[in-house]
């Protein structure tokens, strides 16, 4: 699949440090202009952003935590899938039980990473799915 560059990688997690870590991890592709990285501490912040952002279909991918106060990752997933079906959604959660994974699949998640997320796995998944280099 060819993806218009840069790819927007969005991460939603109530843990701010997660955003910082990934930003550091993705420093290179960000500097190269291959990706843009956006981090939101709550699902609502991201949903608000979605309303006003000017997006290119197929150029945005979302990674979201499940366990968040107020709006959970499941809710975010179903809302995004309903209103922006072209955004691929991946779950990132400490839950590793079958029912959470199944639920995510049913709601339209494209993938499921258990925390702590293996960065290499995440990287190769993004590279193969979206044809960008994160190295």
């Amino acid at each position: 699949m060819t993806t218009p560059l840069p790819l927007d990688i969005v991460m939603v997690d109530d843990e701010a440090s997660i955003g910082e870590l990934y930003e550091m991890k993705l420093r290179k592709p960000i500097q190269n202009g291959d990706i843009r990285f956006h981090f939101f501490e709550s699902a609502n912040d991201y949903l608000d952003y979605l309303k006003q952002s000017d997006r290119h279909p197929g150029a945005e991918v979302l990674f979201t935590d499940i366990n968040m106060p107020e709006v959970s990752g499941f809710e975010l997933l179903s809302k995004v899938k309903k209103n922006f079906p072209d955004i691929d959604v991946y779950m990132m959660s400490a839950y590793d039980d079958e029912s959470s994974i199944q639920k995510s699949k049913n709601l339209g998640a494209k993938g499921y990473f258990t925390k702590p997320v293996n960065y290499k796995e995440l990287q190769s998944r993004i590279e193969s799915e979206y044809g960008v280099s994160l190295a």
């Binding site: 440090s17 910082e20 991890k25 420093r27």
Partner: peptide, 28 residues
């Protein structure tokens, strides 16, 4: 408990990258 542990684990992995900047290293 898993939240801080995840950050500790991912952070430690990041420190193992040789090309990380001094600033990022200190922050991590």
């Amino acid at each position: 408990l898993k939240n801080p542990l995840n950050i500790i684990i991912n952070g430690t992995e990041l420190l193992q990258d040789s090309d990380i900047s001094e600033q990022d290293r200190a922050r991590t």
